[in-house]
């Protein structure tokens, strides 16, 4: 029984989601290979080869793979799938895009966003926005699975797997890449950050969001998040959204400012190690999950917090 993990990367560097997905794969089998599908990914492949427990790293390169076009990744993975009993894919926006396509091509029921491997064919996954956890057993000979990376520890480094080139799918006939608008930021990536500072609708405007949330995040070396309400109101960009339909995060510290705590938001952050909530409404549901709640107007509390952090050496 062998497992193929599809690496999460941006053609430049390997993302930690890959290490976490390898951990899930190692719970299924000792024979874990990693596929790096992209363009100009020699450095990414070298990083993947260092993950402890990886048997070998496969590299497939093309322009379409470089843009993670679903059809290209699907055709490449389907061609490789004969040698594997399971394909594990980090549940990123790219992974969620192509995993079901791979599954349908193989006539397999995909298993989405697992948070636990019970055995080689049994997995736990959240349903109803994380309000229930279902344990499912697959009867398919091959399993196509996406992995919620925040639920697994990152595999250690220290391996030295062989790197092998495999063929990429042919050019895509019906899909063309037009453009990317990826926000460049010096802040850590939201889904991998150790600290996340999020703002909600109480901030009231995009200017206020930037004035209040971003300096606090920068002081803590944190990523910036937002509630759906704040994103919908235009205070923060789409990719800041934490929640059921946005990103699922599980940092060491999650600071929620002016967020009431709708269940859809809680679904995206309730696995954080420590949750801090600052909200002037003492009855806000966010306080029920917060380890440390501060009932205060953010306009007063955040400047005080900045001062206290400065005193503490931040």
């Amino acid at each position: 029984m062998a497992v193929l993990v599809i690496a999460d990367h941006d053609n430049v560097s390997l993302k930690d989601n890959t290490h976490k997905t390898v951990t899930a794969a190692l719970a299924i089998s000792g024979d874990v290979d990693v596929l790096v599908a992209g363009q100009g990914v020699a450095a990414v492949a070298a990083e993947a080869a260092k993950i402890a427990g990886v048997r070998k790293v496969l590299v497939a390169e093309s322009a379409d793979l470089g843009k993670q076009v679903a059809e290209a990744v699907t055709d490449t993975v389907v061609a490789l799938s004969g040698g594997y009993d399971a394909v594990l894919i980090p549940a990123t926006s790219a992974g969620k895009n192509y995993a079901p396509r791979i599954a349908a091509k193989l006539d397999v029921a995909p298993i989405s966003e697992i948070i636990e491997v019970v055995d080689a064919s049994t997995f736990v996954r959240p349903i109803y926005a994380g309000n229930a956890l279902e344990t499912v057993q697959s009867s398919d000979a091959k399993k196509i699975i996406t992995v919620r990376a925040t639920a697994f520890k990152a595999a250690a480094e220290g391996g030295s797997a062989a790197v092998e080139t495999v063929s990429a799918a042919g050019a895509m006939a019906h899909t063309r890449f037009v453009s990317d608008e990826i926000v460049k930021s010096d802040r850590p990536e939201l889904s991998a950050a150790k600290i996340v500072v999020s703002g909600g609708r109480a901030l009231g405007s995009a200017e206020e969001f930037q004035r209040v949330i971003e300096p606090l995040a920068d002081k803590l070396g944190a990523a910036v998040g937002a509630s759906r309400a704040a994103v919908d109101a235009g205070y923060a960009p789409n990719d800041y959204q934490v929640g059921q339909t946005g990103k699922v995060v599980a940092p060491q510290l999650y600071v929620a400012i002016g967020i009431s705590g709708a269940i859809q938001h809680l679904a995206g952050m309730k696995d954080s190690k420590v949750i801090v909530a600052i909200n002037k409404d003492a009855d806000a549901p966010i306080f029920q999950v917060a380890d440390f709640g501060l009932v205060a107007d953010y306009k007063v509390a955040v400047p005080e917090l900045m001062d206290e952090l400065a005193k503490a050496g931040f």
Binding site: K67, V69, T92, S93, A94, H174, T175, R176, F177, V178, S179, D180, E181, I182, V183, E189, S191, P237, N238, D239, K247
Partner: peptide, 11 residues
Amino acid sequence: EVDGGLQTLSV
């Protein structure tokens, strides 16, 4: 809507 921003495809 993709992680980190937006991607535009023509299909």
